[in-house]
Design a protein around this nucleic acid. Structure first.
Length: 785
RNA sequence: GACCUUGUAGCUCAGUUGGUUAGAGCGCUUCGUUGACAUCGAAGAGGUCAGAGGUCCGAGUCCUCUCAAGGUCACCA
């Protein structure tokens, strides 16, 4: 053995595990029966972004590896299933930045071409994260690796979508959504970050129709949206406005008459007690408008600029430009009463940081309430147990106030929504495509199809060059949506000019179905043996920041589709921070790359540093000091083993007949009487076996690792081995016994060094263990002392 | 605005259902080790467990309040 441990063999060891197939569980012939008899231990790895290298946070998946290796050693059939995520918006955003460097943008390509380009780009990077996980020692079953854009997965989520449509749980509607005009897509509430913005409250005077010099003053934070006002609302109890019933106001600048509506929801105390109502650009105004049947005027377009709904002079401007003009003009006609300083919360895009423009847009939604109720019930009944417990409450609170989930995204990188429109029934469909000359053409189908104004384009040319298809909500007399089909075949039977929806699913619509999809749930109920055997899974472990994004959606989908919870335990681990407890970020320059640490000190040191002495759910500060300390511990284990090896060699020199075919068994014939030191270390060993087992079962990995550290270093090395230096061959059985058991107990935490030493001793001392790998050796049980 | 979490040695944090002199790693002090150990070993300094009150035979651990820090959620003009 070398004088000091070097992690140079880690990759070789990992390969030997994989080659031996020990991470690949066998599925019995009758999986249902087998599962009833003994339930496998299963974890589905939260799929990292296929395009990105791992960051320090991913390294915390070692808690999954600890559980998985532990259960494998307990003899449970164990599966840890790996995969990667296409990570829709994230990846497209990164790719577009790449394009930008080449002086191009997404608008230069048709949809299919752009998708293929991103696919190639991601494919090139996909193995990076995979290899990094191997470096970290993750005992994943690579034979079952999955990707969110695998055909099987696509087929399954399409089938679920179809089922949701049929069961009226998915609908398409033009509602107010969070729209980022820079990213060019709608977002769910979760993707909106609220920031406090110092702004103003502008008091605008709207003249009362038919009454000279009479005005209603409204206070607003968004004067630019007044051009889209369709009412002013006041509280029916408000004495100030009692005589305004049935009166109308003249909307300045736009010169439109708008009604005054009365609604209890209006706060009489705020501002003037009168609120301008802009149904197309404010969520609460949207609700008011629905209630009072007001018209909708959307004044900003999806490109972020004002449209033809506003007077000419305000057209084609960004909101802040419109704001400036509106305020100036209102002032010049003396309709700006006053301006006050005011700070309030404004939604910003989590991705690009720009303000979100709430606006009405046709989108696909999931009717969430019936689904979330089921999820809440299951969690309430502890069919899913949260670790730490406090996340149960957050989960339930969030579920209670959940709103319908907009699942369509106006990006190409993702699962294209499986909906086909018959253009003949949707003449107003707006089509953007690149023609053969490479020009971007936008027009509505009625014009394109009749070649009016547009010149002649064959349908093939349009279809091939298609960028965006925007079909207005089109309901027929019966209130049914016309010309919409949920399979291509079906659509083709009805029409000649068929185009598929260009929107894609929210990434979480796909990853929310990850557990059952990766295991082989089939829409026709002809499920795979894997699914029958491993589902529901045992534990889901992830960082708490995607509790709502992902964990909640998996629970919802799992219960809806399989009628079972997707996992029984939701273990929320925490964030890895720098040595001062600061969140890692590129801008702070405190990002730690896990693989760099593995290169320097080995995976074991990093793994141990990440769990040593941490409490469940609390942040994990990682520092050089901590890693060095654990690197020293790795070396300590190595050197203690090496010393034991040397000691036995020395004893053998003195007495070649010494029997080293142990290990320790109580009452073995001819065994020397054990001294008190032996009793003591064996008692300690028993305690550590029990406490480690208990702590891992309770997810107290920090405690378990700390106890092991002290047992091995202080009890075994400092006391027992020190005393063994002065003793004879009678120490050998106990030395080997404690060493072997320590290696086993430490293995889930530090798989490489322990397997390395195990293989060395196994080779040199044939009876050290009959087990092929430490990774599949039996978990220790207490000894009789 | 609602909810959650945290406040323990110089730093980063443990302390599982309340039970004798409060722990670890790193750092610091002294001594010793060059035949297991990129060191290691032995000994040690250092905390009124944020503050106040309460429950209890007994509280860092449970309850209330105060102060401080962080986080999550939220359509208020």
């Amino acid at each position: 053995m070398d004088k000091a441990y070097t992690p140079k063999d880690e990759e070789k060891i990992y390969k030997s595990w994989v080659d031996a197939g020990i991470f690949t569980p066998k599925v019995p012939k009758d999986p249902i029966k087998a599962r009833a008899k003994k339930e496998p231990f299963t974890i589905i790895l939260p799929p990292p972004n296929a395009n990105n290298p791992l960051h320090a946070g991913h390294a915390l998946f070692i808690v999954e590896d600890i559980m998985v290796r532990f259960h494998r050693m307990l003899g449970d059939p164990t599966l840890w299933l790996p995969g990667t995520d296409h990570a829709g918006i994230e990846t497209q955003f990164v790719f577009e930045k790449q394009l930008q460097k080449e002086g191009k943008s997404r608008f230069d390509f048709d949809r299919d071409t752009l998708f293929k380009m991103i696919f190639d780009y991601v494919t090139k990077n996909r193995d990076v994260a995979k290899n990094q996980m191997k470096r970290l020692g993750f005992s994943l079953d690579w034979t079952r690796e999955k990707f969110t854009l695998d055909e099987d997965h696509i087929k399954r989520i399409y089938a679920v979508f179809r089922r949701m449509v049929d069961e009226d749980l998915v609908y398409r509607d033009e509602k107010i959504v969070n729209y980022c005009t820079f990213c060019g897509t709608a977002f769910s509430n979760l993707e909106v970050i609220h920031k406090t913005v110092d702004s103003h409250l502008w008091y605008l005077k709207y003249p009362v129709v038919g009454e000279k010099d009479r005005f209603v003053t409204v206070a607003t934070t968004r004067p630019e949206t007044m051009l889209g006002d369709t009412a002013v609302a006041v509280n029916p109890k408000d004495p100030k406005y009692q005589d305004l019933k049935n009166k109308k106001l003249l909307l300045p600048l736009a010169d439109r008459e708008i009604p005054i509506i009365f609604d209890d929801s209006i706060d009489m105390e705020f501002g003037t007690g009168a609120v301008k109502v802009t149904p197309s650009h404010s969520a609460e105004d949207y609700d008011l408008a629905k209630k009072h049947d007001l018209p909708f005027i959307r004044i900003f377009d999806y490109n972020g600029k004002s449209n033809e709904q506003v007077p000419q002079k305000y057209q084609n401007l960004y909101p802040n430009q419109v704001r400036q003009s509106v305020v100036d003009d209102m002032q010049s006609i003396e309709l700006l009463e006053k301006t006050e300083d005011y700070s309030h919360e404004v939604g910003h895009c989590y991705r690009c940081g720009r303000p979100i423009e709430p606006m009405t847009a046709p989108q696909w939604f999931v009717k969430i309430k019936p689904l979330s109720d089921e999820a809440s019930k299951a969690v309430q009944k502890d069919e899913i147990v949260f670790v730490p417990k406090r996340f149960k409450k957050s989960f339930l609170t969030w579920m209670k106030d959940i709103k319908d989930w907009p699942i369509s995204r106006q990006i190409v990188w993702g699962h294209r929504i499986p909906v086909w429109y018959d253009l003949a029934q949707n003449l107003q469909a707006k089509i953007t495509f690149i023609n053969k000359k490479g020009e971007v053409i936008t027009n509505i189908w009625s014009k394109l199809s009749s070649n009016i104004e547009t010149g002649f384009y064959s349908f093939e040319e349009i279809k091939q060059g298609l960028q965006v298809l925007l079909v207005p909500i089109n309901k027929n007399d019966q209130g049914e949506v016309a010309g919409v089909y949920y399979s291509e075949t079906e659509a083709n039977q009805h029409g000649k000019y068929i185009l598929q929806e260009t929107d894609t699913f929210d990434t979480w619509f796909s990853s929310g179905q990850w557990p059952y999809s990766t295991l082989g749930w089939e829409p026709d109920s002809n499920h795979s043996p894997d699914f029958l055997y491993f589902y529901p899974t045992s534990v889901l472990d992830t960082m708490w920041d995607i509790l709502f994004f992902w964990v909640a959606r998996m629970v919802i989908f799992g219960l809806y589709v399989t009628k079972e919870v997707p996992f029984k335990v939701a273990h929320m681990h925490s964030r890895v921070t720098d040595s001062k407890g600061q969140k890692m970020s590129k801008s702070k320059g405190n990002v730690i790359d896990p693989v760099t640490i593995v290169d320097q000190h080995g995976a074991d040191a990093l793994r141990m540093a990440l769990v040593f002495g941490i409490a469940p759910g609390s942040d994990v500060a990682i520092s050089d000091d901590k890693i060095r300390a654990q690197r020293n511990f790795v070396n300590k284990i190595w050197n203690a083993s090496r010393f034991i090896d040397m000691l036995i060699d020395r004893l053998k020199e003195k007495n070649p007949a010494i029997d080293i075919s142990l290990p320790f068994i109580k009452g073995r014939d001819g065994e020397a009487e054990r001294g008190l030191v032996d009793q003591e270390i064996l008692t300690q060993l028993n305690k550590i076996i029990q406490s480690t087992t208990k702590n891992i079962n309770k997810y107290h990995f920090g405690q378990a690792s700390e106890d092991l550290y002290h047992f091995f270093w202080n009890q075994f090395c400092d006391i027992y081995i020190e005393k063994a230096k002065d003793r004879g061959e009678d120490v050998v059985p106990v030395l080997l016994t404690v060493l072997l058991n320590s290696l086993k107990l430490l293995h889930p935490f530090m798989p490489f060094v322990t397997e390395n030493i195990f293989q060395y001793f196994k080779q040199k001392y044939p009876n050290f263990s009959s087990e092929e790998f430490l990774a599949i050796s039996s978990w220790p049980k207490p000894y009789e002392v």
